[in-house]
Design a protein around this nucleic acid. Structure first.
Lengths: 239, 239
DNA sequence: TGAAAAAACGAGCGCTCACTCTGTTTTGTG
DNA sequence: CACAAAACAGAGTGAGCGCTCGTTTTTTCA
């Protein structure tokens, strides 16, 4: 899958700007709508997208405060501005909401990370830097989505959990590929590539999993990105 | 606080053996009972400890499968082998169960990590290795406890959440102290000590947060411990 | 051994939940 | 402006929740 709204290549604006276009709630909800057209009974796309956006924004807000299961549909109705009955024009049951969000996060992260600017294939160091920065900035832009996906993934229907697992592995593979290319070219020294890729992942996730901590501490995203890049690069630098 | 059952110092058995004694469900529940004696109406300590252990084992089992809030007290009664009414001799409401587990995890990790063998103060490299290995092995021994504390900490009464946050910070401070001592002695080169300590934490947590992944992959704990130690040591090695 | 104390039991209470259903309002169109 | 069709509203429904409390079972010890 590919995010048509993301301009890619060398003349693209800086990462956080291009991300913001493709990852506005509206844009994402348009994609969700497309993927779940059969479940949504509202036919007019504009209306459906707008309401779905209001619903999902409310879901993220309420869930990230108290947890998905603790969010009642009455609360959701109140915050989203629709009625109980209205809500059920947009999904067939509460779990569908969860699946909608989970799949969209998985697809988005995969699409964004696979869409590296041309030329980075030849430069593992730059490519790795780009992956780290893009991943962290993506999770920052879609913060509530990622927090939701991380915290609620477990305890849910097998298919949804399988999807989350697969997504985790896919991301890891992208990193492992770059690490392997770097080793092949002699710019990295890595005893265990798969384990190293596995260890990089939580460094990226910590930014959104413990967002409150970094906010309280006043750590800007640039500092965090630079810190992770420096940490990882020293750990795998050619010896 | 100090775990009286943990033999410390140089002639102790290897870390996983001494940990196992102090972190058996029975031993932990004895400590929980002591801390919450006023809430437990059963007076005979042996009986109370045994039943509390059965209850908490069941809580961890059910919660880690479906989430704490999704666990009904009827399920808990069934799995623990007590009746609905019987349960309420051991806690006054459902949240108390959560608090019991959360506080015990916090106290234990703090106590264990602060209890480094004598002599490590003078050797930041060895001390850091010991911290990493001990932390990972502790979370392995008390796996369901840590998974529970990590996944359920949010969404809960302010005091409980504050406790979890404080525990996270305390652990980080322990690591930051060792890093700082290493820098002072010229064995580490670290531009931002606090950020580095913050980055080490998720490397340790990944072992239990994504335990299923590593199990499926067949990664033994020794490999993981060695991998993290190598990764961290290269990242902070004197340049 | 028998009665008092301790512990365990489990149906039942009040309440909230996800979800439904029917009547009403809004919207698009000839 | 008329009139379907689309969209929304919100009270209602049964299931299931946390928690209680009168009762029964087990333990204790003179």
């Amino acid at each position: 899958m590919r995010l048509s709204e993301v301009p890619n290549g060398r003349d693209a604006p800086p990462p956080e700007a291009s991300l913001r276009n493709a990852t506005s709630t509206e844009a994402i909800c348009a994609r969700i709508l497309e993927r779940h057209r059969d479940r949504v009974s509202v036919r007019k796309p504009h209306l459906a997208t707008a309401n779905l956006a209001r619903i999902i924004e409310a879901v993220l807000k309420l869930s990230n405060r108290q947890g998905f299961h603790e969010m009642s549909l009455r609360d959701l109705a109140k915050v989203s501005g629709l009625s109980m009955g209205g809500l059920y024009s947009y999904f067939d049951n509460k779990n569908t909401l969860l699946v909608m969000i989970l799949t969209e996060v998985s697809e988005t992260v995969e699409a964004v990370l696979r869409d590296a600017p041309a030329g980075l294939d030849d430069d593992p160091i730059a490519h790795l830097r780009w992956l780290i920065e893009t991943h962290i900035r993506l999770t920052e832009t879609m913060l509530p989505w990622f927090v939701f996906a991380f915290m609620e993934a477990k305890g849910f229907p097998a298919p949804a959990r399988a999807l989350a697992t697969e997504s985790e592995l896919a991301t890891e593979r992208i990193f492992a590929d770059v690490l392997a290319r770097g080793v092949a070219r002699g710019v990295f020294t890595i005893p265990d590539i798969d384990l190293t890729a596995a260890l990089i992942k939580p460094l990226l996730q910590d930014w959104y999993v413990k967002r409150a901590k970094y906010r309280k501490r006043g750590t800007p995203i640039e500092t965090y990105v630079a810190g992770v890049i420096a940490f990882v690069e020293r750990a795998i630098a050619k010896t």
